[in-house]
């Protein structure tokens, strides 16, 4: 790999652009595709290879095609947490380890303090406005943890209109049903509402905040990858 190619690859990753590095294993010749454009390299990928690169990005999977290795660099996974609560304190570091860039939203200053979330992007704002600004995409998971409809509901309404691959909300079956009714009344799409994970997380009998965080991260992973063998 040439240094100049590595630099272009890294700046594309820094700019959060979907990128594919193509390497011909026979001689190490390489090309870099950033979004839909071949930007550099000593290899000229044909249409079939370019199409395969697009497929790889969509499937979030690097693979061999025709003697070439197609290595994908998809934009990083994001996690948006509504509610700077105890579960969030456990979930954020776990999700960070799993590769998510986490943002916590909570307008309540006492909760959203730097001391409670050292080094984490904590936004002391009303979730609705921030959610719109954050533009959740298909690489984003959204978790509502406040238990407070004033905060959770508007955030979820924005989430339901997005391509987020996972939307979860804390609360019992009863709470979830009541929330679904409110969201429906607010004009959210019933099919999208049905897709909210609630009661939140994989049912592993989690009790403590950290255990609940594990169950949420497990369900997020399932939503992202699908079960093995599928």
């Amino acid at each position: 790999m040439k240094r100049s190619l590595l630099e272009q690859l890294q700046s594309a990753r820094d700019a959060v652009l979907p990128t594919v590095l193509i390497t011909r294993l026979e001689d190490g010749a390489q090309a870099l595709i950033v979004e839909d454009t071949v930007v550099t390299g000593d290899l000229a990928p044909d249409t079939a290879l370019k199409d395969a690169a697009k497929d790889c990005l969509r499937q979030d999977k690097s693979r061999m095609v025709d003697g070439c290795f197609l290595q994908i660099f998809n934009p990083p996974l994001r996690l948006i947490v509504i509610g700077a609560v105890h579960i969030a304190q456990a979930l954020v570091p776990m999700a960070t380890l799993a590769g998510y860039a986490a943002t916590v939203i909570d307008p309540r200053g006492a909760w959203a303090s730097e001391a409670r979330f050292p080094g984490v992007a904590v936004l002391q704002d009303w979730p609705e406005e921030v959610m719109v600004a954050l533009k959740p995409d298909r690489r984003t998971a959204i978790v509502a943890l406040t238990h407070d409809p004033k905060l959770d509901d508007p955030a979820l309404a924005v989430a339901l209109k997005s391509d987020a691959f996972y939307i979860g909300a804390l609360g019992s079956k009863k709470t979830a049903a009541a929330r679904a009714e409110r969201l429906k009344a607010g004009g959210s799409d019933p099919d999208a509402i049905a897709g909210i994970d609630g009661p939140i997380g994989l049912n592993i009998g989690a009790v403590s905040p950290a255990e609940i965080a594990v169950s949420i991260l497990a369900k997020m992973t399932l939503a992202l990858r699908g079960p093995k063998g599928s």
Partner: peptide, 17 residues
């Protein structure tokens, strides 16, 4: 030097890439 997993078969702990 850079080493990259390009293919795996069966169970292997780290995916291609």
């Amino acid at each position: 030097a850079v080493a990259t997993v390009v293919e795996t078969w069966g169970s292997s702990p780290r995916p291609a890439g």
